[in-house]
Amino acid sequence: MGVFERKAYGLSCDVCQKVYINEYLDKSLWWNENSAKEDAENKGCWLIKDEKCYCPACYEIDKDDNVTIKEKKE
């Protein structure tokens, strides 16, 4: 078997830099960007908004569906 290189996509939180891992599949890389985003939103409860990614610990949605993003700590 030969060695080859392949482009892959993953997500990290724009606030805390946590990497999204699908814990059921033990997977953090996908073959295309849309699959990575869809999996994180649907299975990981991540928020993808304005081309930014937020893990569940870094955003809140209130009862009126208002989204609050935590501030990034430098």
Score class of each variant (00 low, 15 high):
56 P>H: 12
72 K>Q: 03
56 P>S: 13
30 W>N: 00
42 N>Q: 09
74 E>K: 00
28 S>Q: 12
64 D>E: 15
61 I>R: 01
61 I>H: 00
39 D>P: 02
68 T>C: 08
45 C>F: 14
31 W>C: 06
66 N>S: 00
72 K>E: 05
68 T>D: 05
71 E>V: 02
19 V>K: 13
23 E>M: 14
22 N>Q: 07
18 K>L: 14
71 E>R: 06
20 Y>P: 00
63 K>V: 13
51 E>T: 00
8 A>I: 14
4 F>W: 09
13 C>R: 04
40 A>G: 00
45 C>W: 14
66 N>W: 07
57 A>L: 14
22 N>D: 15
28 S>K: 11
21 I>V: 15
49 K>Y: 05
14 D>I: 05
50 D>N: 10
66 N>E: 09
17 Q>I: 01
66 N>C: 08
52 K>D: 06
26 D>V: 13
65 D>C: 11
21 I>A: 10
39 D>M: 05
48 I>N: 04
71 E>Q: 02
7 K>C: 05
24 Y>K: 15
51 E>K: 10
16 C>E: 06
64 D>S: 09
65 D>N: 14
42 N>M: 06
57 A>Y: 11
58 C>L: 08
31 W>E: 12
18 K>V: 11
30 W>Q: 06
12 S>R: 06
24 Y>S: 15
13 C>D: 04
47 L>A: 02
46 W>S: 01
37 K>W: 06
58 C>N: 01
8 A>F: 14
63 K>C: 07
2 G>V: 12
37 K>T: 07
19 V>E: 12
67 V>T: 10
46 W>D: 03
61 I>E: 01
6 R>C: 03
48 I>L: 11
37 K>A: 03
21 I>Y: 13
28 S>A: 13
11 L>W: 10
47 L>V: 03
21 I>Q: 13
56 P>F: 14
31 W>D: 12
65 D>L: 14
68 T>Q: 00
9 Y>M: 02
65 D>A: 12
23 E>F: 15
56 P>V: 13
61 I>A: 06
28 S>V: 07
46 W>H: 07
48 I>S: 03
54 Y>A: 02
11 L>Y: 09
68 T>G: 00
69 I>H: 03
4 F>M: 05
63 K>T: 11
33 E>I: 13
49 K>A: 09
12 S>L: 02
12 S>M: 09
51 E>Q: 07
5 E>G: 01
56 P>L: 15
48 I>P: 01
21 I>H: 12
21 I>G: 01
33 E>S: 13
57 A>Q: 13
68 T>Y: 04
9 Y>C: 05
65 D>V: 03
54 Y>S: 06
43 K>G: 05
61 I>Q: 01
7 K>P: 04
40 A>Y: 03
40 A>K: 04
54 Y>T: 05
43 K>D: 12
22 N>H: 10
44 G>N: 09
32 N>T: 06
64 D>M: 10
30 W>M: 01
39 D>I: 02
32 N>A: 02
60 E>C: 06
